[in-house]
Amino acid sequence: MNNQELMIEMSHVDKWFGDFHVLKDINIDVASGERIVICGPSGSGKSTAIRLVNSLEPYDRGNIKVDGIPLDGSGDSVDAIRREVGMVFQHFNLFPHLTVMDNCTLAPIWVRKESAEAAEETAMHFLERVKIPEQARKYPGQLSGGQQQRVAIARSLCMQPKIMLFDEPTSALDPEMINEVLDTMVQLAEDGMTMICVTHEMGFARQVANRVVFMADGEIVEEKPPTEFFSNPENERTKAFLGDILTRE
């Protein structure tokens, strides 16, 4: 780890769902501007791991700090952390009854207390950045999956987060729409956003990740820079996973 400011610190984190030990001694540090890709077979706990970061799930043991704020489960810490962290989900999670513009301005107006004018200006800026400003007046149902996911990214950016979490953002999309979302994420990475992406898009991992974390059965099995991760995986499970996913690509 370099000397840059740490944005996310997860140390010795454990979590159970009932008797099921879903996360086992997870340690991940993410510096400001770093991009981490987490991959692994389904059920490996990778989505749960990033859901802990903005407190969508509680954890049972260990410590998590986000931008120096300890996530201790108190309402204040959750609020403070959620102001810093944006999240994009597999199924977009847009409000279907609100226009694209209203989806983007809702939280800035109600949570950040921005004026409607300022919020709309910011929303337009980010909609231009994800290349769909012309869809601002439409409803989510009128858009393709790729467009909806780009709106979801723009909506997150409108809250001006320091960290973005992506939970399999392309896995619900038709193949022809995956690239438009990945391009947006690449651009975001190039602009210096701190990101954790749970994804199986290995091309994306190669292109933008500083480190790739491979998880299986709730554990971090291997963690390496992408060139090493792809050319020289050590663990048998990593090799098997990569063999499987790269032949599919």
């Binding site: 279907p96 009854h97 439409k138 409803y139 989510p140 149902g141 009128q142 858009l143």
Partner: peptide, 8 residues
């Protein structure tokens, strides 16, 4: 059919 929510 074109994707507007029911009320709208």
């Amino acid at each position: 059919a074109v994707g507007l929510p029911g009320v709208v």
